[in-house]
Design a protein around this nucleic acid. Structure first.
Lengths: 201, 201
DNA sequence: AGTATCATGTAAACTGTTACATGATTCG
DNA sequence: CGAATCATGTAACAGTTTACATGATACT
């Protein structure tokens, strides 16, 4: 359900082809709401069916075409409604915490591998988001530049501040996950001994 | 995919009827992996089809029956495999952060309502999980007691420690979400003024 | 001529949500 | 005898993932 609003977020700065949209998606709003291209094309068609966007076929070379999507007033209205309405919160469903709570059923090696993997995963995410924060501050992200180009200059700081805010939440999340993983490693050290099967070679 | 392992986590301490399982689920592992009862019954049937559990129909009164599920060796093996294998990590998909990043499209009132709601939601979750931590420490959660009853006393502390660890991660998560929401409120104050439409009555 | 990248999807399977549906038993 | 709770689902829909599938154009 959020995918369409992520797509509208991009289309609000101007028309884009499905392909461009998909590419821009990966490097901007896709950090906040991941979606593969195979989901984006059908969703655009569906949104077109509901009147939120209109697609315009453009010739490309001799035979090729590309479909450029424009946001309609109805699409803009749907976006505004989404912004004004409360977000429905889903109950938590965390595989990592589920597994962690029953880790006595794993070998200590598997437990260590699980935590190392958890930390590795979130460090990777953290890196992405921090890099994005740097690009936001420098205002060098291409979609952000296009957005600022169609925004009243008095609102530039606010626009940048909200983008920053969105990513700061994810950065905090990643840091919390990493800290939790490290806390788990300390717990394993205390339960099984610090070197546990990795000392002797 | 995690639902079945959440269910096996409970069945590992002994057989349970679908109904009991569902009830125990809500107050224990359901905090880590939410699922409605309408999902639990079909999943049990599916697991039975795959040989992970066997269901035994028991008479109840004159006409009623209840189906008691036992974990099979195959089910136990599937659980062990899940414990040993690395968890697949899904890319992030956070509606709240998505919305936050584009909050310049909302009115300041809607933005404030969104943050208040976010904080309210996570405070509620936090309360649940902290209460669960207290019950874990007191070892008074019924499923935990049943688990300890079938566990070697030398492993009791470890079992409790991992349960605690699982919930601590969620508590940290909730605290991070609340802190982020408050940071957002401060941001709104700085952008729109601290009292903004809520001062005069 | 070959490679990168532009360009767009379909199909099947899986997972999860919501609403609806029904009836039995136990306790006061 | 009425209410709580025991007991078990189905149906329809929404959302997501994965694998497959194809071909055009631009650049070197």
């Amino acid at each position: 359900m959020s995918l369409r609003y992520a797509l509208i977020s991009l289309l609000r700065v101007g028309p884009l082809s499905g392909y461009d949209l998909q590419k821009q998606f990966q490097v901007s709003v896709g950090h906040l709401w991941h979606a593969p291209d195979s989901q984006i094309y059908p969703e655009l068609r569906k949104m077109e069916g509901e009147g939120l966007v209109v697609g315009e076929d453009q010739a490309r070379g001799e035979r090729g075409t590309r479909r450029v999507y424009h946001l309609t007033e109805e699409g803009e209205a749907a976006y505004t409604r989404w912004m004004q309405d409360p977000l429905p919160y889903a109950r938590v469903r965390e595989p990592a915490n589920l597994k962690a709570a029953y880790l006595e059923a794993a070998t200590s090696d598997a437990a260590r591998a699980f935590l190392a993997d958890h930390i590795r995963h979130w460090r990777g995410e953290l890196e992405q988001w921090e890099a994005e924060l740097v690009r936001i501050d420098a205002r060098e992200n291409p979609m952000l530049q296009r957005r600022l180009a169609v925004t009243d200059p008095r609102d530039h700081d606010r626009t940048v501040a909200f983008k920053r805010f969105g990513y700061e939440g994810l950065v905090a999340r990643a840091r919390a996950e990493i800290a939790w993983g490290e806390q788990g490693q300390a717990l394993l050290d205390s339960l099984y001994g610090p070197e546990d099967a990795h000392s002797a070679s």
